[in-house]
Structure formats: C-alpha cells, structure tokens
C-alpha cells in the first residue's frame, strides 16, 4: 500500500509567512509535499468559510500562517485572524468537524527554519489522525 500522504492547505500571508516559506526553500530545508501553500495578501483575508470548504472537499488539515502579532503589514490584520480562528475552532467542534486539524502559526519572513519545523511537525500530527473523515459525510 502506498504511504498515506495527507493534503494540507496552508493559507500564507504574502508579507511574512509566505516569505518564510520561500526562505525555507532557499535554505534547502526539507518538509513534506503534503504542505500546499496558498498565498493571500494578509492572514485576515481568510474567510472561515475557506477553511470549512477545504475540509469538506478533502483537505486533511488547514494551516494558517501570518506575521507575528504587531508585525502585520496591515497593522492589525492578524489580530482579527486570531479572533476568527478562535471562533472557527468553536464552530468546527459544534459542526462535528475536528478542530485539532486546524493550525494557526505566526512565522516571519526570516523564520524559514520555523516554517519547515512547523510543516514537518504538523504533517506528522495530521498523519497520526489519519484521513479526514468529514469529506465522506458531507452534511452542510
């Protein structure tokens, strides 16, 4: 049997985490192919519905990456992200989705190593949970 390769959607803000992911690449760090970065202008662009949709369409995990608190290119965008993420976690639980599969992390443009580390650890974690079951019982 082929090894289970999870699909992890990563919404990364253009200014920090996306640049951090680039640096991980430039530094030739290794992390799994499961990590699928999607670039947005700011983490605050991420509509909680994106995350729900990604899950219902087969993502095994969703990882949101933004600038460190206080460093958002748009000042307070990531504070809104943090609040929305907290709300999303609750909504996930009420909907019977697995909020453990969600991750929010602040990674700066200079933290290539942190990006690779988070990506590796998070992929391992998702692997241990196995495939996302909710994509088989769509109820929304």
């Amino acid at each position: 049997m082929k090894e289970y390769k999870p699909k992890i959607v990563c919404f990364l803000c253009k200014w920090c985490t996306s640049a951090g992911a680039d640096l991980a690449g430039t530094s030739r760090l290794k992390y799994p192919a499961s990590i699928l970065p999607i670039r947005v202008m700011c983490s605050s662009r991420i509509d909680p519905m994106f995350v729900v949709k990604a899950f219902l369409n087969g993502a095994d995990g969703v990882f949101i990456g933004g600038c460190h608190p206080g460093d958002c290119h748009y000042h307070e965008g990531n504070y809104h992200t943090r609040r929305r993420f907290a709300m999303l976690t609750k909504v996930f639980d009420t909907l019977g989705l697995d909020s453990k599969r969600l991750k929010l992390s602040w990674i700066s443009a200079s933290e290539g190593t942190k990006f690779a580390k988070v990506s590796n650890e998070y992929t391992e974690k998702i692997k241990s949970y196995g495939e996302n079951p909710s994509k088989w019982n769509v109820f929304l």
Binding site: I38, M41, C42, R45, M49, K53, H80
Partner: peptide, 30 residues
C-alpha cells in the same frame, strides 16, 4: 488586505485579484 472581505457577513465585499472564487478554485484543484 482583504480583512473587510473576510468580515462581511453578507458577501458584499470583494477583494480584487483575491476573490473568494479565485481562492476556492486554487484550493480545490490543489
């Protein structure tokens, strides 16, 4: 930045070049 777009409860705000549809299409295919 698109913050307003994510906050709008009625889908009235749109982010040019980062519309929900564009992002969905990218995610779904990925």
């Amino acid at each position: 930045c698109g913050n307003c777009v994510a906050s709008c409860p009625s889908g009235a705000a749109h982010a040019k070049h980062f519309t929900s549809l564009q992002i969905y299409q990218e995610v779904l295919e990925a």
